[in-house]
Simulated scan of single mutants.
Amino acid sequence: MIYYPLLAKGETIGISAPSSGAPEALHYVVRESTLRMNKRGFQTVIGETVWSQNKAASAPAKLRAKEFNSMMKEQSIDHLIPIWGGELLIEMLEYTDFKKLDKKWILGYSDTSVLLLAITLKTGLATAHGPNFVDVRGEQMDETTAKWMEVLATKEGDSIVQKASSKYQKEWDHANPTSCIFHLTENTEWKTISGEEESFNGRLLGGCLDVIRHLVGTPYGDVAGFREQFTLGEPVVWYFENDQMNTTELRRILVQMKLAGWFNECAGIMFGRSAANGPVDNYEVKDVYLALAEELGIPIVYDIDCGHQPPQMTFINGAVAEVTAGKGTGKVKQSFK
């Protein structure tokens, strides 16, 4: 079975940096985020790793894991939200105490998705792929981003529906944040590779492809073992996003996952919007999606609200998802069972 934490107002959220921390010039961002979180009715505990950044990480891997393990065991901390992603989270996995993880939400995306997916696959503890701590520091939140609180407050046995956003951010402009941090200027358009309306359902798993690909073939990426131990044999619905890869690299990774059995009993795949996906020799990202859809015989939905072009939905690794997409829009219903 899957174990679902439950978020409630007034609880305490631990803020850590299992990947990158904040250099001194960005400490103000942490303080802004803390202020907003407190105003929304949550207490915060800021870890020491949050305040440092050197050699592509907040701290050595063992120290990052030690702080994470401590926050997961500390009874006064109810949930964890990493400050943001980074580059080298995978270093700390071998020092993470997977056998002593309390029932707490861990929310984030980008490099954090390595930790999220590994935890769910190894322990059956549901994890949340959604906004980072700094993404919610605005005076207000757009409707899609703000849904993270409602999703994490969904009780075990209940369901919640998220719908496609109306607009998204094409490019980051960190120097000129809006009242909700993001610049939502472009019209959102969910697409299907078939061009028709699609619907599918299964256990939800996924993350940032740039980094979760490195779990393939390791003890932290045992998809078959997860399905056998923690689910009733339901098919998997994958969600992915691409931060920096061109189309041929993306294709290689997806083929590797297929050969490793990650797509066995796959009901469908969702791909997030991306500023990457650069074509190589006229090989477009749509060609990648089409080839995968034909090989697996499954529906594929793309340009969904997920990843580095906000806003993004909050996806729960381990939840049962019902996906519907067509005519430029879509929705995802997640059931905590």
Score class of each variant (00 low, 15 high):
residue 143 E to T: 14
residue 94 E to C: 02
residue 229 Q to N: 10
residue 232 L to D: 04
residue 238 W to I: 04
residue 128 A to P: 04
residue 211 V to F: 15
residue 141 M to T: 06
residue 136 V to K: 00
residue 72 M to D: 05
residue 235 P to V: 06
residue 168 Y to W: 15
residue 115 L to M: 07
residue 219 P to W: 09
residue 235 P to W: 08
residue 161 V to A: 14
residue 110 S to F: 00
residue 221 G to P: 04
residue 82 P to K: 13
residue 157 G to H: 14
residue 264 N to F: 07
residue 186 E to A: 02
residue 1 M to F: 04
residue 309 Q to N: 08
residue 148 W to M: 13
residue 54 N to C: 05
residue 281 D to T: 02
residue 330 G to K: 04
residue 182 F to W: 15
residue 151 V to I: 15
residue 214 H to T: 05
residue 85 G to L: 12
residue 123 T to R: 05
residue 235 P to C: 03
residue 334 Q to P: 03
residue 265 E to G: 05
residue 107 L to K: 00
residue 150 E to R: 08
residue 259 L to C: 05
residue 280 V to T: 00
residue 89 L to Y: 08
residue 57 A to K: 15
residue 145 T to W: 07
residue 214 H to C: 00
residue 109 Y to F: 09
residue 247 T to R: 09
residue 4 Y to F: 09
residue 173 D to A: 09
residue 287 D to Q: 06
residue 79 H to K: 00
residue 289 Y to C: 03
residue 82 P to E: 12
residue 206 G to D: 07
residue 75 Q to S: 01
residue 28 Y to R: 02
residue 288 V to L: 09
residue 28 Y to V: 01
residue 139 E to V: 06
residue 96 T to G: 07
residue 201 N to W: 12
residue 147 K to A: 14
residue 193 I to W: 08
residue 177 P to T: 01
residue 306 C to G: 01
residue 252 R to S: 07
residue 169 Q to Y: 14
residue 275 A to R: 04
residue 200 F to D: 14
residue 147 K to E: 11
residue 288 V to E: 01
residue 282 N to G: 11
residue 82 P to D: 12
residue 84 W to D: 01
residue 102 D to Y: 02
residue 140 Q to G: 00
residue 136 V to L: 07
residue 156 E to G: 04
residue 137 R to V: 03
residue 294 E to D: 14
residue 268 G to S: 09
residue 316 I to F: 15
residue 257 M to N: 10
residue 101 L to E: 13
residue 101 L to C: 13
residue 265 E to R: 15
residue 141 M to E: 14
residue 109 Y to S: 05
residue 98 F to M: 07
residue 312 Q to F: 15
residue 164 A to L: 09
residue 101 L to I: 14
residue 292 L to N: 03
residue 196 E to T: 01
residue 101 L to K: 11
residue 122 K to I: 07
residue 76 S to D: 08
residue 303 D to C: 06
residue 253 I to P: 03
residue 205 L to P: 08
residue 200 F to W: 15
residue 209 L to A: 12
residue 111 D to F: 06
residue 244 Q to D: 05
residue 138 G to D: 00
residue 306 C to H: 08
residue 154 T to A: 06
residue 11 E to R: 10
residue 185 T to N: 10
residue 7 L to I: 02
residue 126 A to V: 07
residue 201 N to L: 11
residue 86 G to E: 10
residue 312 Q to I: 13
residue 70 S to W: 08
residue 140 Q to L: 02
residue 197 E to P: 01
residue 278 G to V: 02
residue 34 T to F: 06
residue 30 V to W: 14
